[in-house]
Design a protein around this nucleic acid. Sequence first.
DNA 1: TCCGTTCTGGACTTGCTGGTCCATTTTCTG
DNA 2: CAGAAAATGGACCAGCAAGTCCAGAACGGA
Lengths: 204, 204
Amino acid sequence: MPDAATVKGRATRARIIGGAAEVLREQGVAFTTLDDIRGRTGTSKSQLFHYFPAGKDELLLAVARFEADRVLEDQQPHLGRLDSWESWQQWRDVVVERYERQGDHCPLAALFLQVGRSHPGARAIVSELMRQWQQQLARGMRALRSNGLVSPALDVDRAAAALLAGIQGGVTIMMSTGDSTHLKAALDTGIEHLRASAGEPTAT
Amino acid sequence: MPDAATVKGRATRARIIGGAAEVLREQGVAFTTLDDIRGRTGTSKSQLFHYFPAGKDELLLAVARFEADRVLEDQQPHLGRLDSWESWQQWRDVVVERYERQGDHCPLAALFLQVGRSHPGARAIVSELMRQWQQQLARGMRALRSNGLVSPALDVDRAAAALLAGIQGGVTIMMSTGDSTHLKAALDTGIEHLRASAGEPTAT
DNA sequence: TCCGTTCTGGACTTGCTGGTCCATTTTCTG
DNA sequence: CAGAAAATGGACCAGCAAGTCCAGAACGGA
């Protein structure tokens, strides 16, 4: 898997992935050529194919992995410590801020569509990301439950799945409309749903 | 706007759009060429450019419009009559069924990414669809409120935005993972949230 | 220092695909 | 029926972008 046998080689490979990620965010997958990536990363055609022998698809997949890793990292440390209402709120703010900054680009979605469902590796990346994300949300909900902040009857896994869906959809809609209202609504309503499950009255 | 001056012309144009929509669903935008569309629709190159002078982008945009129109239509008449818990449930089932049938293709998302944010018309289509969809959900919630089924304090617009986000995200996740769990969770949790706002106890 | 491996540069090929063009047929109008 | 306008067929073009190739430079181990 480590496609470089040398320190220098690994550095180049990393530079290619990072640079490609930049270009892809700026131009979108559909409008990015290998030459664009070559230009940005200061590499030559042969380097691209040296590190990604299978060509463009392999490179795109590597970028997808790279981006997927960032997604959860960017939400830390908050996502890992969802054990109080304050920490949920902080996490919520970080998510909103992160995606508002990202604007109307979702590198992952684009990458996925380009590489295609046919490719075995593409699905795995997204599936794994979603699994981990949901798992962390569920863990936070269980922490709340341990602290007696939400009802023991709450179906944690379903609530986590719903919240995750809301986030994804909020981001999707923001990409299309440029408006983060839906993302915020999904997050706030989701958290509110947790609060309500504790019987705590909800202030709108 | 009506780019055809003749009955025959309009028919051909419609055939092109419909056929293109099929091909795009099957192969994905990234892998569909004008020749594929030409083959499927039994037309010639000159016809394609006769009805869509601006070329491929214009055609894709027309298909996007076509697909967007179907989205809400497919949810009728349920989406228009969300005035009882039963009707909400029916609508929910229709949505799940529709997207499970559609499988892992979201023509709109793909189209949008391909045509690009740059294109002025692309955003408008999606924005308008989201606006209408959310509006219908909100109307349904107001109907519930009129019938005393949900709390008057419910922030209808926010709840509708959150529910819509959940649906979008559920579909997105399903496209990536092939699993409709998240979509169902989002729908069920959203409806449950409405129910809870009425003070009605929630069965899990 | 020497030799094999890795890394790099960049010219070149090749196939595809969007788009053009014009001749021909069909349809509408009066 | 005649002439114009619309619709159609399909050959052709041009550019682009992915991928190939090989020569040469840098590097690492003995």
